[in-house]
Design a protein around this nucleic acid. Structure first.
Length: 109
DNA sequence: TTACTGACGATAA
DNA sequence: CTTATCGCCAGTA
């Protein structure tokens, strides 16, 4: 598949975006995740997840990805809270309770 | 090459 | 609660 030699275990930039989109599509409706959580599942940093969504997030439920404290990113804050409310995710003061609808479950109890 | 920026995260004060 | 700093990764000038 790959036309040229490259270090084993590494991925091409495009593949990283695909991996991010794949995880985001796995987030069930009515639930939310975080850039950090998605990044850990994919194996990249949270900033790389944000970069991927900013580039091609339109094809995935990007609105289910919030910041670590349950708040939405500035450039999409209003739009994101609107979409979340439409699928039954409550927000309080522009903040979502990750302990209630966070995904994957932390197993906290 | 260095410097700046960004849909982030954690910690300190 | 807010503000500031550092670490992180990638893109752009």
């Amino acid at each position: 598949m790959t036309p040229g030699p490259r270090p084993a275990g590494s991925r091409e930039p495009g593949d990283v975006d695909e991996a991010v989109f794949d995880v985001v599509e796995r987030i069930p409706p009515g639930r939310v995740s975080t850039y950090g959580a998605v990044g850990r599942l994919v194996g990249v940093g949270p900033r790389r997840v944000a970069r991927a969504l900013s580039a091609g997030g339109a094809a995935v439920p990007w609105h289910r990805v919030l910041r670590a404290d349950g708040t939405a990113a500035e450039p999409v804050r209003a739009r994101q809270l609107e979409l979340l409310a439409a699928e039954g995710v409550p927000a309080r003061g522009g903040r979502v309770d990750l302990r209630a609808v966070g995904w994957p479950d932390d197993g906290d109890g």
